[in-house]
Every structure is written in structure tokens, then in C-alpha cells.
């Protein structure tokens, strides 16, 4: 275990825990750097940031939103368009700490159980359902029950009562389905996946350097996105890639690296 082969992982944890620290400090100590939580926050009491998926549900529920919330969600959308939609999932989302721990334990304990059949595109149906249900019942359907929000409110505001659902997700990921929550169910990840399909920052694969050791497949939480690996050069196009960088840091052959999406040659992977 070297630092080099974990450089992105360490950086990700620093960002995840750093953001949480800023939020917690904002709540308990009154730090004015980042106040609020992952649903809505303000940088230094001025720049708004808002969860675009929550905003979309509110709009679907027939609610007008204030300009501040709209600006906040546009800033976040622009940021994730630049850095890769699901960069939220791997670099920011506090529930990722839980699901990654489950994934890591699975690998360490050699658990390979896959008890239920669930296609990875289930999440898109759940995403569609979240928006349709919001429109029907007039409440933000996913926001009302979101385990992610329950989890970060527990961490930031100390509101209790969410342990059961977080534990359920942990157990699901560890003993029922690999990457069960993040890779199959979570509509927020699905939403960012849709945005990430056309995002700017992507992982690039260089076939000439690859020795086909398959290490990247072992660490990847969404291995289906690596389908061009061992086949031909290209950019990992799928929005389901979380840009977590695990494949890059475990690759000893310099076959993978972060790159800018080349929109013109998008189709050459096929």
C-alpha cells in the first residue's frame, strides 16, 4: 500500500471529510465558509449552492423556486458538467464513505454474494419514478425519504434516528448486492450520471500501455463502464463512471489517466 497507488483515494477522503468539517463547523462553531448542507448551502453567506435534483423534484411537484435556489443549482450543474456528473458520488457524497467501506470489506473478506437480480439501469427507472411521483403527490418524493440527506443531516446537525436506514444500506452493499445502493438504486447518482454523460472531464484509456492485469476492474465500483479496456483506445464515455480515479491509481502501466472529453470523436469507441 503506497501513497501513490492511493493518491486519489486519499484526496477524495480529504475533500469528503473536509466538506463535512466545514458544514459541521458552520453549524456548531458559526464558521462562515460553508453553511447549510448538501441540499442547499451558501459559501461565505453569499454564493448559493443547491442540489439540482432536489430542485427538479420541487419543480415537478409544482413549486416555484426562488432565484437564489435556481442560481445555486445552476452553479452546481455547471461544476459537475466540468468535472464529471458523478464526481459528486465519489468525491462529495457522505454516504459514499459508508458504501465504499462496504465495498472495501467485501474485497477484504472475500464476499462475493449477489443474492438478488437487479439490473444496473434500475436506478434510471427509480429516477423517473421520483420525478413522476413528485408531480403526482406534490412533494419532492426522493428528498422526503432520501437516506443520503438523512445521513448528512445526522452528521452535520446531529439529528438522530437515521442509523437504521444507513445500516440497512451498509448491509445491503456488503452481503446482498455489490455496490447495491450507489450502483443500482440511488436516483441521485442516476441523475448525476445523466449529466455526466456529456461532461468535460473523463478517464482516458491507452490500449498500447495496457498489460491486461485487470486491476482496474477489481477496484471499479461500476466496472461496466470500463468495457473498452483491453479492447481499444478511447475515453470512458459512460456517465455512470464516478471519476473516482481508483482505476488510474491502481494501474501500474500508465494506461489510464484523467483527460478532457473529446466531443468530436465520441463515437469511435463503438
Amino acid at each position: 500500500m503506497t501513497v501513490k497507488s492511493h493518491r486519489y483515494l486519499i484526496f477524495r477522503r480529504v475533500i469528503q471529510l473536509g466538506l463535512l468539517t466545514l458544514f459541521i463547523g458552520g453549524n456548531y462553531m458559526g464558521w462562515n465558509i460553508l453553511k447549510g448542507n448538501f441540499s442547499f448551502s451558501r459559501i461565505a453567506d453569499t454564493v448559493p449552492l443547491a442540489d439540482p435534483f432536489a430542485v427538479l423534484q420541487m419543480l415537478a411537484a409544482g413549486f416555484t423556486i426562488t432565484s437564489e435556489i435556481l442560481i445555486g443549482s445552476i452553479i452546481i450543474l455547471a461544476l459537475y458538467w466540468l468535472l464529471g456528473g458523478r464526481i459528486f458520488c465519489s468525491w462529495i457524497c457522505p454516504l459514499n464513505l459508508v458504501t465504499d467501506t462496504a465495498l472495501w470489506l467485501r474485497r477484504k473478506l472475500g464476499i462475493t454474494t449477489d443474492r438478488i437480480y437487479m439490473p444496473r439501469n434500475s436506478r434510471y427507472y427509480i429516477l423517473a419514478m421520483a420525478i413522476i411521483l413528485s408531480a403526482i403527490i406534490g412533494y419532492a418524493a426522493f428528498e422526503s425519504i432520501s437516506p443520503i440527506s438523512i445521513w448528512f443531516r445526522m452528521l452535520i446537525f446531529g439529528t438522530g434516528g437515521g442509523w437504521a436506514i444507513v445500516l440497512a444500506i451498509f448491509l445491503l452493499d456488503i452481503s446482498v448486492k455489490r455496490n447495491g445502493w450507489c450502483g443500482h438504486i440511488c436516483p441521485l447518482g442516476a441523475f448525476y450520471g445523466v449529466i455526466g454523460r456529456w461532461s468535460l472531464m473523463k478517464v482516458k484509456y491507452k490500449h498500447d500501455n495496457c498489460t491486461q492485469c485487470m486491476d482496474c476492474f477489481k477496484v471499479c465500483p461500476e466496472p461496466q463502464v470500463l468495457h473498452i479496456v483491453t479492447k481499444h483506445n478511447g475515453i470512458i464515455q459512460s456517465g455512470e463512471c464516478t471519476n473516482c480515479g481508483r482505476c488510474i491509481e491502481v494501474c501500474n502501466d500508465k494506461a489510464l489517466r484523467f483527460s478532457v472529453n473529446n466531443f468530436k470523436t465520441q463515437n469511435h469507441e463503438k
Binding site: K35, N37, M58, I150, I156, F157, T159, G160, G161
Partner: peptide, 30 residues
């Protein structure tokens, strides 16, 4: 319907009067 559950009001409250509802409080969580 319109609440974003962001906790800005909770943080702004100087007396710690306001709390965010937990899932088992019987109040819309957050």
C-alpha cells in the same frame, strides 16, 4: 413542499430553538 431541508434557519437561530426533524420524530424528516 417548499422547504429544502438545508438547515439555514437552524444555523441562524442564536438560541438553538430550531431543530431539524429526525426520521423517527413523526415530522417530515429534515
Amino acid at each position: 413542499q417548499s422547504c429544502l431541508k438545508c438547515g439555514q434557519c437552524v444555523e441562524a437561530c442564536p438560541y438553538d430553538t430550531l431543530k431539524l426533524a429526525a426520521p423517527n420524530d413523526g415530522i417530515s424528516p429534515g
